[in-house]
Structure formats: C-alpha cells, structure tokens
Nucleic acid binder design. Structure first.
Lengths: 196, 196
DNA sequence: TCTTGAATAGTACAAACGTACTATTAGGAT
DNA sequence: ATCCTAATAGTACGTTTGTACTATTCAAGA
C-alpha cells in the first residue's frame, strides 16, 4: 500500500491555482498541478477530495469548489471554552470573513482610524473600519461623517431634527454641525491586526 | 442604440453562480444566467466585463474571474482623508479580508471573547479573536492559553525561563502558571461586528 | 508467500466547449 | 431620412473536455 494521498497539499495547490487563474483547473491542468501523468489518477484524487467535502459535483463533471476551499475559517466558541479536541473539529462551523462582515460589497469600504476620539468604544488609531455607504444611520450607530468639511468617526445621535456626533473619549466634545454634515457611511465592524 | 449593458447585474449574477456552484459558468450557462438566447451575446458581454477588469482571459478562453469578482473590499486611506471621488475610485486598492488577516488557514481559528481582562488593549466581551495555533509566542504577543486548565486570553511575557500571562485590566493580576501552561495560539487580529 | 486495496498510469471516445463568422434591430446623431 | 453603432440572435466547426474503461506497482495484512 503506497503512502496516503497528500490531501492538504492538493487543497493548497487548488487554492493557489484559483487565486492565480480565477477558476478551478481542468482535469488535465490538475494533472500538472498534482504532478500526475494520468487523467485517471486525477479522477481518483478528486473523488477523494469530493468525499472529504472540498469539491462538489457540478454539471458536466467539471471541477467545482465547496466553501471548504474558498476561504472559510473555523469558528469556535468562547475563549473560556478553549479549543476543541481533534474529534470535535469535524463538526466545527466555518466562517467566511467577508460574508460575515459585509452586507453589500459594492457599498462597503475599509478605512483606517487615525485618531483616538473613539478610544472608549475600544476603537484605536490604526484600527480598520468596515464602512457601509448609502444607508441612513440610526441613533447610536458609529458613523464616518464630514462635519463642515472635516471627516471624522463618531457616534451618531439624533434628537428630533437635531444631530450630534459624539466621541467616545472625554478629551473631545460632541459636535453639532454648523454648516454641513455629510454621512459618509455606517461603521459595521472594526478590525485590528497585530504584527506585520 | 439600445439601453446600456447591465454590468452590475451581470457581475452579481456571476458572483451568485460561483457561490452556488464553486466555479465560473460556461458560455452556455452564462447565456441562461444573463437571459440571452445566443452565444455571441455572451461573448460580447464577457468581452465588456473583461475590459472592465471583472474577468480575465485564461487557457482555452474559459470564463475566469479576477479578484474584483472574488470578494475583495475597497481599501481606502485614513478616516480623516474621507472617501474618494468617483474618479479616484478607479485606482483604489482591493483587500481580501481572509488573505489579509490569516496566514495559515489550516492553523487558524476564531474564538469569541467572554471576559474583560483585556479591555485596556481595546479588546472587549463579544469581540472575535483570530488565533493562529502551532507557533511560539514572542514577548508582548497576545495569546489564548490554558493556565492550570483554565483557558484565557492575555499578554504573553517571558523572562528567562519564567513566563507570565498579563491582563490589560487593572482589575486582574498577572498570572504565573503553577502546574501547567498550554499555549493554544497567538492572537493575530481582533474583529468587532456591530449590529445583527 | 499470497492477497488485497490504494495509488498510480494509459487510452479512446462522446459530449461539451469557445471561436468566428453572419445577421437583425433600434435608438441616437447628423 | 439616413447612417452608425451597440446590443442582441443564429450557426458550424475545430478543440478541449470528462468518462469509462484497462493496466501496473507496491506495501500492509493474513
């Protein structure tokens, strides 16, 4: 019995191929990818990958990914629950970050925080904001807005007709727009990456 | 002159098709997707999408996505720089969240914070941690670890042979493990999502 | 030592593919 | 009214595709 198939090697090769070409490989391209000399070897390997849930059978049999290949991360429970045992990992949820954080990709932008006016809302300099444009903020939303021409990120507060932009830092005062207020977008998520 | 091509309608249809089937459509499938009756109409439309940067020419002409379709978000500058004008949007960077935040997907997990011991590091209850396993932490890294059997998230501090786990909250004391310390993983990023 | 099964190789062929033509319609510009 | 171009439709064909066979090798287990 020969050594077992290198499943992860093949999954990675498929991911890299897709990143580069924007589509899954054909069987003959997969031959080259996997270092095979024969279509039938590819068939055998792909059947195994399908069984493991990385690929799916589509119309006319062409190679098609499941979302186990297209970039999801395992979503565990709380920190205090720790990590699952290897047996438990089988049933773990998968999470696609973009799908999870973004509702309308065409209306969504990422901006970097460069001040500390929202520090008490646990948003600091360098943090990335996922901002959705084209929606009307509700009370308590965090927004990116231009106040009298200056862009800022603040809590949005509305009282009747009156609008205030409220920082989450005692060092700053709430702002009541004088001449103009343009809501750039609503902050839907914050991301902080550590290290390089 | 008939009404202009519905580019975004087609881009969305391609995204949905890919989500469902794990691969781009063939020309004949794109016919159905776009509501066309002719291969040549698909050729015309796809040529336009390619020109606009949504598709790329691959081997033997089959439909292939660029990363303008495969899920990236527009990365702008700082908050204070605000949003680009429509003209500036043409040259904006795209960012794939998973690629940006995750180095080794097979070793990466998402866990939810359920305490406030790291609040002064701007990490609060409900935040999601992107945790990479199987690496050795350096001084100052934030880790998820089991201390004498209890899982927690803390700063990792090492002094010679001595290891401490340091909270970012005055309410708690640094921990020096008594019997056992297991590093579950290193926190590479924090995510906070607002709303539902 | 023999058997079994996993993992590989080789090949022919029907079906599906994309290409490159021709053709038509209709609205805007002249 | 005429012309031009974008956007659609139709078709034949050469190329590429996946399938379904047969075949071989080798390590583990009996």
């Amino acid at each position: 019995m020969p050594p077992a198939l290198d499943i992860h090697g093949k999954v990675n090769a498929l991911r890299i191929f897709f990143r580069k070409t924007g589509r899954p490989p054909t069987f003959r391209e997969a031959m080259e990818l996997f270092g095979y000399k024969s279509i039938a070897s590819v068939q055998f390997a792909l059947k195994r990958l399908e069984k493991l849930g990385y690929l799916q059978k589509g119309a006319s049999g062409r190679i098609a990914f499941t979302n186990r290949i297209s970039g999801d991360i395992r979503l565990l429970g709380s920190v205090s629950a720790g990590f699952p045992s290897p047996a438990e990992e089988e049933t773990v949820d998968l999470l696609n970050l973009t799908d999870f954080l973004v509702r309308r990709r065409e209306a969504t932008y990422i901006l970097k925080v460069d001040g500390d006016s929202m520090i008490d809302a646990l948003i600091g300099p360098g943090d990335l904001l996922i901002v959705e444009r084209g929606r009307t903020p509700k009370n308590g939303d965090i927004v990116v807005a231009a106040v009298d021409g200056d862009w800022t990120v603040k809590y949005f507060e509305k009282n009747g007709r009156s609008v205030r932009l409220v920082p989450a830092n005692k060092k700053y005062n709430p702002i009541e727009p004088n001449q103009s207020l343009e809501i750039g977008g609503i902050v839907r998520a914050v991301i902080r990456k550590y290290g390089a």
